[in-house]
């Protein structure tokens, strides 16, 4: 477990170093490997505390699906907001509602909150335990169960597999 998370962190740091320097020169590569090794050694404990899951083929496939759906939702959100801004009467009907989530680990909740912020018309204001406080620019349902079904369900079924 510890060696595995050390390896993930090391590969991640090497990738960031390669994109930052964008050369394969020997000197740059040596310094990068050295710095990544030291950082990965000292940060492995924090990485385990974050609760990131172990990799598997199914999780990577769901992660790619998730990225595709997230990008589609981001583009839809921008067209929606652009329509509401440019319309002369501004057809908005804002309100603050509560939704519920079934995810357990902290990092999964953070990813869910960020995804909700980027999707059409919703914006995460606060998280307390299992509940999220959402500002909704066009309120369709005030009830907590219906709001959960409309806002959170489309991401949660993927995140439950990825972080499960």
């Amino acid at each position: 477990m510890k060696f595995k998370s050390f390896l993930y962190l090391f590969i991640l740091l090497i990738l960031i170093w390669l994109t930052l320097t964008s050369t394969f020169h020997l000197q740059e590569l040596t310094v990068g490997i050295l710095v990544s090794f030291i950082l990965a050694l000292s940060l492995t404990e924090n990485y385990i505390d974050l609760g990131l899951p172990a990799l598997s083929a199914k999780k990577i496939m769901f992660f790619i699906f998730y990225i595709v759906i997230l990008f589609k939702e981001i583009i839809m959100a921008n067209l929606d907001v652009a329509y509401r801004i440019l319309h002369p009467k501004m057809p908005i009907k804002p309100g603050i509602v509560i939704i519920r989530t079934g995810l357990k680990s902290d990092i999964a909740k953070m990813v869910l909150a960020n995804s909700i912020t980027l999707t059409p018309g919703t914006f995460t204001l606060d998280i307390l335990g299992d509940n999220l406080l959402i500002h909704w620019i066009n309120v369709k349902a005030e009830n907590i169960d219906e709001a959960t079904k409309i806002i959170g369900e489309k991401f949660e079924k993927y995140l439950r597999v990825i972080f499960g």
């Binding site: 908005i92 009907k93 804002p94 309100g95 603050i96 509602v97 509560i98 909150a113 960020n114 912020t117 914006f123 995460t124 204001l125 606060d126 307390l128 509940n131 406080l133 500002h135 309120v139 005030e142």
Partner: peptide, 29 residues
């Protein structure tokens, strides 16, 4: 993340909603 921090700060410091708003459950929360 930074916009979420700003939204949470304005919610906690009690900025009122505009007149068009239909529902506000932040007190229950």
């Amino acid at each position: 993340i930074s916009n979420h921090a700003l939204g949470r700060a304005s919610c906690k410091s009690g900025v009122p909603l505009c007149k068009k708003s239909v529902v506000n459950k932040s007190k229950d929360f």
